[in-house]
């Protein structure tokens, strides 16, 4: 490699840090949307690097469905303590209790969709004018059209056909009262980039990304974790298997892979050989062709 040439991971890191600093410069009350998944962890790591030796100048916002893996919550609390940042939790359970949303019924009931209302409420209550998300364009076809700086109207809606042009590294974060932005600093990263970066930087990850024994059941070819709120169909039964998470979301819609990968190197080798996308196991995306597009328009992550 040439002396004054960056590797692609260095270039991606530099781009993301630029975007995160731009958020700090252009907005008054930004927040990091933190799910406890690898993408939001990497984004938080990049934010730490962007402002070193100062602290990250914004809080983490976690939308808690109440159906989380405990390991994720523990990891989140440790990270917040280490970084010395504020944590704000928006609770879906609270939205249900307050009658803001109605819980879905049936076997495939998930709180995933309900999160949108809780998220928009949390944005309004805390007067956030910008939320940074770990969304990546390679994840899903509607995300491929997303800008780094994505404008949301006063209803929190995304209008994909009327997005602001985004050129060079000039980002337009101007908005009217009541509107906000979603910013995606790692837009240009792929799943493989994220894992390679985690390896290169030794970024700590929640234990459930590595192989562990768990009580699981199989539904329509997808392995799901057993939990008190997961209703089994008559033909389904739970068993103990060696699994790991490829993505981390709400328990009700996070498919687990049967895997013995115990190190980052093994995870990377596994991903390199995989022939299914990471969202291929996400029940929330399999609902219809345009499931993600529809949720995003309404204000989803």
């Amino acid at each position: 490699m040439d002396k004054y040439n960056l590797t692609h991971l260095d270039e991606l890191e530099s781009e993301s840090i630029f975007v995160i600093r731009e958020v700090a410069a252009q907005f008054e009350r930004p927040a990091i949307l933190f799910s406890g998944g690898k993408d939001s962890i990497v984004m938080t790591h990049l934010a730490k690097k962007a402002f070193w030796p100062a602290r990250i100048p914004f809080p983490l916002l976690h939308i808690d469905t109440g159906h989380n893996f405990q390991e994720t919550i523990d990891f989140r609390d440790d990270l917040v303590k280490e970084l010395g940042v504020k944590l704000i939790v928006g609770s879906v359970q609270e939205s249900i209790d307050n009658g803001r949303v109605t819980e879905e019924k049936g076997y495939n009931a998930s709180r995933n969709l309900l999160q949108t209302v809780t998220l928009l409420d949390a944005i309004e209550r805390n007067k956030f004018d910008c939320c940074m998300g770990g969304g990546r364009r390679d994840e899903e076809k509607a995300r491929a059209k997303e800008r780094f700086f994505s404008h949301r109207d006063e209803f929190g809606q995304w209008d994909p056909k009327n997005q602001r042009p985004e050129l060079w590294n000039i980002f337009n974060g101007r908005k009217h009262m009541g509107e906000h932005f979603r910013v995606f600093p790692i837009s240009n990263w792929t799943e493989m980039d994220v894992w390679q970066y985690i390896l290169k930087e030794s970024v700590p990850m929640p234990s459930i990304y590595y192989t562990h024994q768990r009580e699981v059941f199989n539904r329509d070819g997808t392995w799901l974790a057993a939990a008190p709120f997961m209703k089994l169909k008559p033909n389904e039964h739970t068993e103990i298997r060696e699994v790991r998470c490829r993505t981390i979301g709400d328990i009700s819609c996070t498919g687990l892979s049967l895997s013995t990968a115990n190190t980052l190197e093994e995870i990377i080798a596994e991903i390199a050989a995989t022939r299914v996308t990471e969202r291929g196991s996400r029940a929330d995306d399999l609902r219809s062709e345009a499931a993600m597009e529809d949720r995003k328009k309404e204000g989803y992550f």
């Binding site: 692609h8 390679d138 509607a142 491929a144």
Partner: peptide, 25 residues
Amino acid sequence: GLRAEREQGITIDVAYRYFATPRRK
């Protein structure tokens, strides 16, 4: 990517795609 694009068989907006070979991303 978008529903209208599939329905009308056209591309509406800039979309970003990613692939890699051993040499470049």
